[in-house]
Design a binder for these strands. Structure first.
Ligand SMILES: [Mn+2]
Ligand SMILES: [Mn+2]
Ligand SMILES: [Mn+2]
Ligand SMILES: [Mn+2]
Lengths: 226, 226
DNA sequence: TATTTCCCTTTGAGTGTTCAAAGTGGAAAA
DNA sequence: TTTTCCACTTTGAACACTCAAAGGGAAATA
């Protein structure tokens, strides 16, 4: 059985290499993310390589092996199912489930996870819109785009909040910027570094940086073919 | 924060010294219960004493300090609330919740525990009839008696199953011997080492050893005053 | 009283995870 | 080309937990 520490390292490597699967993750990046000194990561990564979970290229970085990726997806599945369970069954706010899931993901048995999955109706996405890997390790990858790349008159549905800091999630909730909400872009102010959009009948303006944390599935424009 | 290991040792010491609170628990007993070699317990107990959780009398045994007892009750509260939650909300069988709770009791936050307690309606007893300590550390101690000490015509309600091995719990379930069930003693066969009683309209016979694992709250006899 | 026995303790060692601090490789700057 | 610099690695040590095996205390037995 992988220890709690190993599970967290593998999950972190998966997330750091997400943008470009198969990409090398530098150990410095990992050290920052795991909040340990660089020497600790070097030691740990050698152990992970020994266990066959990563391939390690000294001074270049690490990347997950198939076994590592399988483990990462299992941990992510636990994490995200637990977050959804906490929100739907125990009425937690979506801004406070992450820390809790970070612990519980290492403690739930397969049997309990299966019960939770069943009770929730085999959901595909967690409260933040992140896809929940299936028990077999498959992940949905909907084509989403950050709000900051939108153009006026674009119309779509918020699918995912990438910035999951508690403060940002509370900010987003207060403005109706939650997965499932329909949005229409009203204007993009390039010099002003902001974007204005219509959500739930209200006009909202937010900066580019904030907009970058919100991912939208755009509706295909009826007029523009191809 | 007490580690998982420390919490388990302290809980075990509490349970071993339960029959006579304040009693010394021998390290050998503890080694058997924790499934480690005796030397490990000696080392660990010194650390627990150092942390102020137990008082250690070399070659005599250990006993919890007030701080140790407080910790034990907190862990037991988590364990028992989790067991009840698994049975009531996730529809686990009461014979399979123990192992799960043994892990989760170290992973749930105070906030999550509070939600569970609230959702369950601040219950006083777990699925096996064990009292759930309050957040303040108070435990109900109903006066219960083992079935093997019953006399013919005694009448009462099963309150607790002390033998919590999965196999015994399934055996008990199949015969209606569960907390809340009314029982009337029909006969006690001393040479035959068995006892016969009426449960849910059915007559059941069980051996003394099995009867000892079932605790009953007897109804005061109407006829006998004093 | 002398001996045996059993439990408990001590010692030395190993694993997993971490840090502080010193050392090194190699890309980038000069 | 040479130097500088930063990221990475190495080394030595600590902490929590564990075991195997040897040593010791004192109650029970003879
Ligand atoms: Mn999360
Ligand atoms: Mn975690
Ligand atoms: Mn239990
Ligand atoms: Mn436990």
């Amino acid at each position: 059985m992988a220890s709690r520490t190993v599970e967290d390292y593998i999950k972190q490597i998966y997330q750091e290499q997400q943008p470009v699967p198969g990409q090398l993750v530098s150990l410095g990046r990992l050290a920052t993310a795991m909040e340990v000194v660089p020497g600790t990561v070097t030691t740990m990564v050698k152990a992970l390589a020994e266990a066959g979970l990563v391939s390690y290229e000294p001074r270049q970085g690490v990347r997950l092996t198939p076994a590592g990726e399988k483990l990462a997806l299992h941990v992510l599945r636990r994490h995200r199912l637990i977050e959804l369970f906490l929100v739907q069954v125990l009425k937690f706010d979506w801004s406070e489930v992450h820390a809790e899931a970070e612990e519980l993901e290492h403690a739930v048995s397969e049997r309990l996870l299966e019960r939770i999955d069943e009770l929730l109706g085999r959901p595909g996405f967690d409260p933040h819109g992140d896809p929940i890997p299936s028990a077999a390790g498959e992940v949905a990858q909907p084509r989403l785009h950050p709000l900051n790349a939108a153009r006026p008159a674009d119309r779509g549905v918020i699918a995912r909040i990438a910035d999951q800091q508690a403060e940002f999630l509370r900010y987003a909730t207060a403005r109706g910027l939650v997965p499932g909400a329909e949005v229409v872009i009203q204007s993009v102010d390039v010099p002003g570094d902001s974007i204005t959009l219509l959500v739930q009948g209200k006009s909202r303006t937010l900066g580019r940086a904030a907009a970058a944390g919100i991912l939208v599935a755009w509706q295909p424009e009826a007029a523009a073919s191809e």
